[in-house]
C-alpha cells in the first residue's frame, strides 16, 4: 500500500498552525516517512495541486473570494478534511468585529487607493464546507496534532479531553484568576488541551481555543458580575476570540443595551 497523500493549506491567517507542524522537530521526519506530502505551499516548491488527497489540513479564515474558491477546490479533492486552528474552526481574531463593514476597516487601515483589495467578512472555514475533524487552538497544540494525525492514519477517531481549561488549571494547582484575582478569565468556557498555559503564567484565559462543548455562558457571566466586574469588561474579554459564537448567544446585544444604559466602561 502506498503512503497516504497529504496536503497542508493556509487560507487568510498567520500560518501559525502550519508552523506548529514544522515545529514538531522531533517527529517531522518520521511523519514524512508515513505520509506523502504532495501539496504544502509554505514548505514545498513543486506542489501538485490536482492529485486527490487522502488527508488535507486547512488553517485560517475565509476573508477573500479567492480563499473561498481555494477552500472549495481543496474539499473537492480530499477524502478527509481537517480544520486546523481557531481561525478555521471558529473564526478567531480576524472575525472578532464582523459587525463592522469591510469597507470601513479597509479605509481605516489603507485610506484611499486600496479598492482593488479582494475582501469579505472573515468567517471560519467550517462555515462553508463540511469537515471531518476540527482541531482548535491558537496555535494548535503539537501533541494534539500528532495524536490526530496518528488516529487518522490508523483509521480511528482521536480522543480529546472534552473539559474546560479550568480542569487543567486545577490539576496544575493554580490560584483561580476569577475567585482570587477578580479577573475575567474564559477558562470555564474554553476547551482544554493547552495545559492551562496562560493561567499558569499568571494571565487569565483569553479563550483562544474556542468554546468547550455546552459552555454555560450565563452562569459564567453571573459569576463575573457577582465579583463586581462590569458587562463592558466581560464583553471586552469575551468578544476577542470565537466572537461569532459568543455573539450568536446575544452577548453583543446585551453589551449594547448596557452601553445605552450608560454602564461603566
Amino acid at each position: 500500500m502506498s503512503a497516504p497523500k497529504v496536503g497542508i493549506f493556509g487560507l487568510t491567517g498567520c500560518a501559525g498552525d502550519q508552523l506548529q507542524i514544522l515545529n514538531c522537530e522531533d517527529e517531522l521526519l518520521r511523519i514524512a516517512e508515513r505520509v506523502e506530502i504532495v501539496d504544502w505551499v509554505m514548505a514545498r516548491s513543486q506542489n501538485d495541486s490536482n492529485t486527490p488527497l487522502d488527508v488535507a489540513f486547512v488553517e485560517g479564515v475565509v476573508a477573500t473570494e479567492r480563499d473561498l474558491a481555494y477552500l472549495k477546490s481543496i474539499r473537492a479533492r480530499s477524502r478527509t478534511l481537517v480544520a486546523l486552528g481557531t481561525c478555521a474552526v471558529w473564526g478567531g481574531l480576524p472575525a472578532m468585529r464582523n459587525e463592522l463593514p469591510r469597507e470601513v476597516l479597509r479605509r481605516e487601515v489603507y485610506a484611499g487607493g486600496a479598492e482593488f483589495l479582494d475582501t469579505r467578512e472573515a468567517r471560519p472555514a467550517t462555515d462553508f464546507v463540511p469537515f471531518e475533524f476540527r482541531l482548535p487552538g491558537c496555535p494548535i497544540e503539537r501533541h494534539e496534532f500528532l495524536r490526530l494525525l496518528n488516529a487518522i492514519l490508523c483509521g480511528g477517531k482521536p480522543e480529546f479531553l472534552n473539559v474546560p481549561v479550568c480542569w487543567e488549571c486545577k490539576t496544575r494547582e493554580n490560584l483561580c484568576r476569577v475567585v482570587h484575582y477578580k479577573e475575567v478569565c474564559c477558562g470555564a468556557m474554553t476547551r482544554a488541551g493547552c495545559g492551562a498555559r496562560c493561567p499558569s503564567h499568571g494571565v487569565p484565559c483569553a479563550g483562544c481555543r474556542g468554546p468547550v462543548e455546552e459552555p454555560n455562558y450565563d452562569a459564567n457571566i453571573t459569576m463575573f458580575q457577582d465579583r463586581g466586574i462590569s458587562w463592558v469588561e466581560i464583553a471586552r474579554k469575551m468578544e476577542a476570540f470565537s466572537a461569532p459564537v459568543w455573539m450568536k448567544l446575544g452577548l453583543e446585544r446585551e453589551h449594547a443595551r448596557e452601553r445605552a444604559r450608560g454602564g461603566r466602561s
Binding site: 487568510t12 479564515v61 476573508a63 479567492r66 487601515v109 476577542a240
Partner: peptide, 19 residues
C-alpha cells in the same frame, strides 16, 4: 500578493491596553 486582509490595526480600536 493575494494575502487576505485581517485589518488588525482597525480591529484594535477600542480595545483595552491589557488585550
Amino acid at each position: 500578493v493575494y494575502e487576505g486582509s485581517r485589518y488588525y490595526e482597525a480591529l484594535l480600536r477600542g480595545k483595552h491596553v491589557d488585550d
